[in-house]
Design a protein around this nucleic acid. Structure first.
Lengths: 220, 220
DNA sequence: ACGGGGTTGTAATCGCTATGTCATCGCCGG
DNA sequence: CCGGCGATGACATAGCGATTACAACCCCGT
C-alpha cells in the first residue's frame, strides 16, 4: 500500500528531525521543511495527506502558510502546533482552516494518533481501481488479474497503485521513488527497476506495465 | 444513514442544553440527563453511540456511572468531561473505562470532533456477526465456531469483533490498537500481535485470521 | 485482606521473505 | 564496435510477524 505522506514544517531542527524520525518509524513517508517558505514550496509541489505546521515560524508565519494551503487546490489536512494551550489560539487556528491543533509540549503518541486520524479522513481516492482485467482493492490490499488473485509485496502494491491511479499517464522512476519510498531515498538506487521487474513477473502475461524509453512506466 | 445517538449527562442545565443544541445542529440525536441516576436509567434503557459524561455529578458520581455503563452489555462509548486538565484525572478516567476525555473548558469543535471519532467506531451494528462458521453474539459476548462455544478473553473478543465487522477488509494493527485499546495507547507495543496469536490458538483449525504482509489482518 | 486462576503486556528470540545492492546481460543507436 | 540504458540474476540482510517465557495485574471468592 502506498504509505501516508506527511510534511513537517518546523524551524527548530531538533524537534523537526525527531518528529520525522518518529513518524518514519511508523512507516510514514516524511518530508521536512525548516522554514515557512520552503514549506509552502513543498506543499505546492508535492501531495501530502497531512501537513504538520508549527504556528510560530520565522519568515512566513504559520497562520499565513496555513491559509495559503487551505486556499490552494491541495487536499492536505493541516495539523497545527501551537505554543500555548490557549483557547484563543485554537479558535484563531480554526478560523484559518486548520483541521486539528495540538499544544506544545505534546505527547508523541498523541500526535501520532491525530496524524492518523487526519490521514484517514483525507479524501480517499476511489476504493477500487480498475484497468483492463486488473483490479486493485485498496481496502483489502488485494490485486487480481482476470479474477485470479495476485499476492503482492508492499512496495509492489505501492507501485501498482500509483501506476493505476495515473490513468495511463507516464510515471517516471523518480516520481515512483518519491511516492512509494520518500524524498530522502537514494537517487542512484535501482530499487524501482527491480521492484517493477518482480511486479511484472507476478502479474504474468500479457504484459501490463509498459516501459517508455527515456525514463518512465505506464499502464495503457 | 441512521443518525448518531448521543446522551449528555451534565448537571449544569445551561451547559447541557447548549451542548445538546450544538450537537443537534450537526444532525445528531441527543438525549439529556441532568443527574447521574437519570443518566444511568437512560443509558440502560436506550442504545447510544456516545455518552458524554460530566465527571463531577451530584448524586451518582460520574466515575461510578462510567463504570456501570462499561460493565453493562451496552456498547456505548464514553467521553468524559473533567474539570481540570490534571493528568491524574485523565488516567483515572481511562482506567474506569472511558474511551476519551476532555478537560473543561473546551472548544465545542473539539468536542464535536471527538464525538464523531468515537461514534465512527461504534456503529449500531447487528447484534450477531457471522462469518463462515464463526458466530459472534455481541449481547452475550460469546463466540462459537461450528456450533462449538469458544471462550475468549476481553481483548481477544474485541479484536475478533472488529475484524468480523470489517467484512473482509484489511484492518491494520494500528487500527486495532485504537479501537480495542484506546487512542492513547503506546504505538510501539506488540500487544496486538500477541493477542492475535492467542486468538488464533483458541479459534483452532483451519485458520480464520489471515495476515496481510505489510501490516494488517483480515477475515476473508 | 488473602490467594489463585485467568488475562494482559513486555521483552527476547526465531524464521522467513521482502527488499536493496551489485554485477552482468542484451538490445538499440551511433 | 562501442556506449548507454533498462532488464535480469544472484546474493545479503534488515525488518516484520510469530512465538515463547515471564511478570504484572485484575477480579473473584473465601
Amino acid at each position: 500500500m502506498e504509505p501516508m505522506r506527511v510534511l513537517v514544517v518546523e524551524d527548530n531542527s531538533v524537534v523537526a528531525d525527531a518528529l520525522a524520525e518518529g513518524l518514519r518509524d511508523q512507516g510514514i513517508a516524511v518530508d521536512v521543511a525548516y522554514d515557512g517558505t520552503t514549506g509552502l514550496d513543498k506543499a505546492m509541489v508535492n501531495t501530502y495527506d497531512v501537513i504538520i505546521l508549527d504556528r510560530d515560524l520565522p519568515g512566513l508565519h504559520g497562520d499565513a502558510l496555513c491559509q495559503q494551503i487551505v486556499d490552494s487546490p491541495s487536499t492536505s489536512r493541516v495539523l497545527m502546533l501551537t505554543a500555548a494551550g490557549l483557547v484563543e489560539e485554537r479558535v484563531e487556528g480554526l478560523n484559518l482552516g486548520a483541521d486539528d491543533y495540538l499544544a506544545k509540549p505534546f505527547d508523541f503518541s498523541e500526535l501520532l494518533a491525530r496524524v492518523h486520524a487526519l490521514g484517514r479522513r483525507s479524501p480517499s481516492t476511489p476504493p477500487v481501481l480498475t484497468r483492463g482485467d486488473l483490479v486493485l482493492d485498496r481496502a483489502r490490499r488485494s490485486v487480481s488479474r482476470a479474477d485470479r488473485p495476485v499476492p503482492l509485496a508492499r512496495k509492489e502494491l505501492g507501485i501498482l497503485e500509483v501506476l493505476m491511479s495515473a490513468e495511463g499517464a507516464v510515471v517516471t522512476a523518480e516520481q515512483l521513488l518519491e511516492r512509494v519510498w520518500d524524498e530522502h531515498a537514494d537517487p542512484f538506487t535501482n530499487a524501482v527497476a527491480v521492484t517493477i521487474l518482480r511486479l511484472r513477473r507476478k502479474l504474468g502475461e500479457p504484459p501490463v506495465i509498459e516501459t517508455i524509453a527515456g525514463g518512465g512506466y505506464r499502464i495503457p
